[in-house]
Amino acid sequence: MFDQFSQCMQQGGIGYCLTSPLSYPFMRNGMIEAALVGLICGVIGCYVVLRGLAFLGDAFSHGILPGVVIAYLLGQSVFLGGLVAAIIIGAIIALLSQNRRISEDTSIGIIFAGAFALGIVLLSSQRNYTSSLTTILTGDVLGVGPNDIILTIIVGAIVIGGVALLYKEFLLTSFDRAMAAAMGFNLGLLDLALIVLIALAVVVSLQALGNILVLAMLVTPAATARLLTDRLSRMMVIAGMLGALEGVVGLYTFFYVKVAAGGSIVLLSTIVFMLVLALSPKHGGLAWLRQRRARTSA
């Protein structure tokens, strides 16, 4: 399984192992894209985790499938197709939620499953249906070109810039809504801004991670970071760096172990989360055991 890795270790040691994949343009681009996507999703993912918006993120990533499929069939930008679909399903969910007999999570469930089905139906008319579906659902980080990277940088700047500019607004509205309202902050507008930033992060990550795996990068690095710090600003820095690092290491895994790139990135982030959960000094399993022992002996 690690044949290629041990071969390259013999040839030139760890430094050679780390640099030799970079001689392939698809690996270079893939790594840059994976790091960018990990960074963007890690940072905005902090709010997804803290506000309990994982289901909404999931709805976006699945619900935009028809837009992605149409863009794919027409040979157009996946980003544009996803963005248009995100706007449409966001608006439909908001409208449905106005009906007091349908709760917000119910309307999210209905719309995202329905939209996902529409995407599958649209794609199933194609001859190479199965392989296309796999590419769309799990992404193709190695097929990323320079233009995709530029787009990711622009959208990433908007997402991270938005989070930085509205730092105190998002912090207060997430921590204490009553106080935020009393200070005159517009809760509805700020919530909308946050959802737009989340949708942008999801859509820009599609190319690299696909509709299904993007949720993991939106949730797992942020959840890992939460275990390591009690301050929002630090949590964002840690989550962003973790996401980027996991993206890069995931691609090395692909290169040396010959397994799917997107899956490697997500699996890696899950393993890191589990390790941190077990070992983190304050909130982890070891700390829990220590506290329990202290309590029983007291």
Binding site: L171, R231, L232, R234
Partner: peptide, 18 residues
């Protein structure tokens, strides 16, 4: 203003000073 304690998201990662 000091709002009711029940409406606050206490687990949010903020310190006393924040």
């Amino acid at each position: 203003y000091v709002p009711q304690r029940e409406e606050v998201h206490w687990d949010f990662p903020v310190t006393v000073e924040d």
